[in-house]
């Protein structure tokens, strides 16, 4: 939110926006009019800092500290039941309960894989995402909590990345090569017990070729959908940028060249 009369530094503006997000979040689901409170908060800050020049983050933080944590403004009994539950789980001196819940669900999911594993892991994934989102909304760093929250997220991200990068070419290769559909055209028969070393190498080269070609094809799609990709693969690809996607094209091209050369030699 841009402030009409306050002259905030970019840093202070970011801090102020984050605070207003917390105000809005903490009042959502209650009977309090969040828009009005937001304008009250703005008026309050203008009353204190209105006559000052450019306001630095530290100065603004002092005023926000006096206003206090928006989460404490509304009594718990006025909040929706689900928010109270989340609040209770998060309550504690170090705000670690959501992280512990994530770890518990991850462990439960892994230990009880045949019974309720997938459900436990899915819930652990959701709790982990919620923990990260809440920390971000509150302007907190996850800190050491990432050791409890990130394992399930990293596992999920690795699965997503592997599925996207290797799934389609592997599926196509298995479908085409191992069924022998193009054995006559390529001269590469399906793998069998009596396959020669040259056949095995040709197979590997074909897989590498398919993967390389897929990565080349994937490059513009990944560059276009970089935000959804980041969102899907939190926290592994948090810092993914377009230049990294260009590397993907480079690696793809390299794989294609290596595969073609290998096929020529074999």
């Amino acid at each position: 939110m841009m402030t009409a009369t306050l002259n905030l530094t970019p840093d202070a503006q970011e801090c102020f926006d984050r605070y207003l997000n917390r105000v809005r979040y903490s009042l959502s689901g209650t009977s309090v009019d969040a828009d009005e409170i937001e304008s009250d908060v703005l008026e309050h800050i203008e009353s204190v800092l209105g006559n000052e020049g450019e306001i630095a983050r530290q100065r603004l933080e002092g005023v926000l500290q006096e206003l206090g944590s928006p989460e404490s403004w509304v009594p718990d009994e006025q909040r929706p039941a689900w928010r109270r539950l989340v609040g209770q789980l998060r309550a504690g001196p170090e705000d670690w309960r959501m992280a512990y819940l994530t770890l518990a669900l991850t462990t439960l999911g892994v230990v009880l894989i045949p019974v309720v594993g997938p459900l436990g892991l899915f819930l652990a994934y959701l709790t982990a995402r919620a923990t990260r989102s809440l920390a971000a909304e509150h302007g907190d760093e996850l800190g050491a909590r990432k050791w409890l929250v990130d394992p399930i997220l990293i596992a999920a991200a690795v699965m997503v990345i592997a599925s996207i990068m290797l799934g389609p070419p592997a599926g196509v290769c298995v479908g085409i090569l191992e069924s022998g559909v193009i054995a006559d055209q390529t001269g590469i028969p399906p793998l069998a017990h009596d396959s020669t070393a040259a056949d095995v190498i040709s197979h590997i080269a074909m897989y590498v070729l398919a993967i390389g070609a897929w990565w080349l094809l994937l490059t513009p799609i990944a560059a276009w959908g970089i935000k959804p990709l980041r969102w899907l693969t939190v926290p592994v690809c948090d810092r993914l940028e377009r230049r990294h996607v260009v590397w993907l094209a480079g690696f793809g091209l390299l794989l294609v060249i290596v595969a073609v050369v290998t096929l020529q030699i074999v």
Partner: peptide
């Protein structure tokens, strides 16, 4: 609002966070 907050702040222990008065 700001004036109300200032006056109440003068009462020892009544207002911990000034923002509480707005809701």
């Amino acid at each position: 609002g700001y004036q109300i907050g200032q006056i109440l702040r003068g009462v020892d222990g009544l207002v911990v966070a000034e923002g509480t008065i707005y809701p």
